[in-house]
Design a binder for these strands. Structure first.
Lengths: 123, 123
DNA sequence: CGGATGCGCAACTCCAAGGTTGCACACCCG
DNA sequence: CGGGTGTGCAACCTTGGAGTTGCGCATCCG
């Protein structure tokens, strides 16, 4: 689930959501377990984590909102699987930002050096 | 400051701290402003943000704990500068994790397909 | 059929993060 | 020297995130 089927305009997961999702240690553990076991239910996850099933369910909802997890109903149980594409997208987003910022910082540094030269390295 | 001078064993900033730091929108704005202007004080940052100077100071402390920001005292004011290296380190860390997980997921998928074949594509 | 088993929803508690105000101290400058 | 400016620290308030318990409903299986 994680969202009502055909309910709203389906807010696309943005990199910010991924950052929020990964900021929590329990959520990281959930995602790790999901990736290592290739899918699990909220109940089975709660068994190997120090929290209750409901807590896990909430974390899965957050991960789902970030697009990192997809739910699949199988009979009476709900199987969750990890989707790592948003993660990749987020790292690329961060790298792009970092590149832009570094470029900017270099430009500023260079500019300030030029100013120092023009003024004869004045104090 | 951001840490007592010669106080403890100096807890090294880990990728988790970076995730926590970047999970907050105000903190992202602070870091952005710092990168675009090449350094600023808590007061000047508070001027262009919808929060008080003290709030900015707390955010700068969090960013500092993640290693994303360094403080430099200049007379009576404290100039903060962005350090993007922890950011780069974090994206690489995340990419490595993603790669490991994807590898694992592929292996599981392949395994389950083999099992299906052995059983004659049973339902 | 009837008891397990698994989920979802709702109400409630708890605490830390984010934010503010107030004040004292250090510093620069006219 | 004295006022203006910039910081740091501490107390305090408020909100939302994280977690739990309790209950009702659906589904599987002996």
């Amino acid at each position: 689930m994680t969202r009502a089927p055909e309910g709203g305009p389906a807010p696309e997961p943005v990199p910010e959501d991924v950052l929020v999702a990964l900021a929590d240690p329990v959520r990281r553990d959930v995602l790790t377990a999901l990736a290592l076991e290739g899918g699990a239910t909220a109940t089975s996850l709660a068994a190997r984590l120090p929290v209750t099933r409901q807590a896990v369910a909430k974390h899965l909802a957050v991960l789902g909102r970030a697009g990192l997890v997809r739910a699949r109903r199988a009979g009476r149980e709900v199987r969750y699987e990890a989707d790592l594409r948003p993660l990749r997208r987020t790292t690329r987003w961060m790298d792009t930002l970092a590149a832009r910022w570094e470029e900017r910082l270099d430009a500023i540094k260079e500019l300030s050096e030029e100013l120092s030269e023009e003024e004869g390295t004045a104090p």
